[in-house]
Write a protein that binds this DNA or RNA. Sequence first.
DNA 1: GACCTGTTCCCTACGTTGTAGAGAGTTTCG
DNA 2: CGAAACTCTCTACAACGTAGGGAACAGGTC
Lengths: 272, 272
Amino acid sequence: MELLWRTREQPRRGPRPRLTVDRIVAAAIGIADGEGIAAVSMRRVAERLGVTAMSLYTYVPSKAELIDVMLDGVYAGMTRAAPASDHWRARLAAVADDNRALYARHPWLAAVAAVSRPPLGPGVIAKYEYELRAFDGTGLDDVQRDAALTFLLGFVETCARAAGAARASRQQTEMTDQEWWEAVTPYLERVFDPERYPTAARVGAAAGAAQGAAYDPDRAYTFGLARVLDGLAVLIEAPTTRAPTAGSEPRANPAGPAADGPSGPGPTGARR
Amino acid sequence: MELLWRTREQPRRGPRPRLTVDRIVAAAIGIADGEGIAAVSMRRVAERLGVTAMSLYTYVPSKAELIDVMLDGVYAGMTRAAPASDHWRARLAAVADDNRALYARHPWLAAVAAVSRPPLGPGVIAKYEYELRAFDGTGLDDVQRDAALTFLLGFVETCARAAGAARASRQQTEMTDQEWWEAVTPYLERVFDPERYPTAARVGAAAGAAQGAAYDPDRAYTFGLARVLDGLAVLIEAPTTRAPTAGSEPRANPAGPAADGPSGPGPTGARR
DNA sequence: GACCTGTTCCCTACGTTGTAGAGAGTTTCG
DNA sequence: CGAAACTCTCTACAACGTAGGGAACAGGTC
């Protein structure tokens, strides 16, 4: 916490610090961006700063906290290109795109992001505030807003994770998707029984042909985002009315809308 | 591959094996179920089987492959409670529930599941076949089916990941969500400016109060699944027809619906 | 029976990892 | 000038995945 907000009276005595938390975080982010989160070790970060691993512990209590601060840091510096469009759909799409762009710049984020008990630093909170605003005018109540945002961001994260996994297997095996498929096919033909799995054979072939791979991150994102927004639209554009844009009476749709929480003790949680 | 399908002529010479791949996989799954995937080390698995770490390498080329086989294994043994309901919506909800139940039984799965280039074993393929069938009668074409399934499963995985993260932080900190919040609040009050972040303050408070925590996995699942199905409904319940539910004109909402892939070379990919 | 050969399993060892503990060096306060 | 506070380094530990080099075992062929 003190770390996240950089609140700590600096010491008066002792040799003057050669490092700052910010420099450490920047170095760690640099490594993570270039070589993945797995390459971020205390020794590696220290080396980049010209000190030993242990000296980092004067600034940061542990690696877990360092990663929390990295996360808050990239959130704080995130570009928010979202247009103040008047249509909620465009605004939400922009929020999704911004997040996707962030994952593109910092692929390690997808492997790190914490949902429950997020590190409540300035970056996390600013992001939460900003993204909640995209729901202004939708008529959703506060609980629904939070749930809807979590839903949207979760979708983008899934896409980013999948894209990251795809990139990783490309690098590790040093094979393109096609080469992988060609390597795997002859074996599969020997064991796979198309009569037992007719749908899998047909759909797999069609999807593979359309995408040039078993999985295409871009398509998955485009397809999924449309579904996500359509799904939220059913909640937002209410039962009775039905003009081009918003409606009144946001409540209730199939499978039960978000609940109306009856009090309960509880946190002023932020998300992600 | 040989590993996944257990196709390998057993040797005629040499001491008779004390282990089998199945026993190794079962031991590894047992550890992962009980203590998380991080506790699955070669030494630990070996210990549970009464051998040394290195002897596992006679059966399994590396830890990565072992995890692939674990994944295929739990998929193969998965219960599929999906009712052969006549409504696609009920069938898809059942598929989601089945997957959620699987993640509940094997929480480590969420931290492991590979989307692109999945280990194409019998379990993975059977699961793919079964789940694709849930789309029978929806009128979706093959490419759309695959995309829709990936979308649905991705959603469930996200929920499972979040739930797993919540459980992990509960265990690691040995704090309930409330205790965590109470620990963090006094500090937050000192640095957080509600005037700067009015929406975050209000929505966070409302969501926290409703959930009793910053994040509630059950609510997130219920809410999200309804949105996912609503979103797919817009795609499925087409332009012309349609009674009680959807609106007209589903095509081209902003962010466009699924694409129509033009050929391309490619794999008969399976998913997950 | 004896040998060869392919297997299984163990021992040791290397280079990583996060971080605990002790101590050396540096700066400021009383 | 101490003394206290602080930064940074060194060494060390347990745990990780797995490479390399054997020892013990069992079948096939003489």
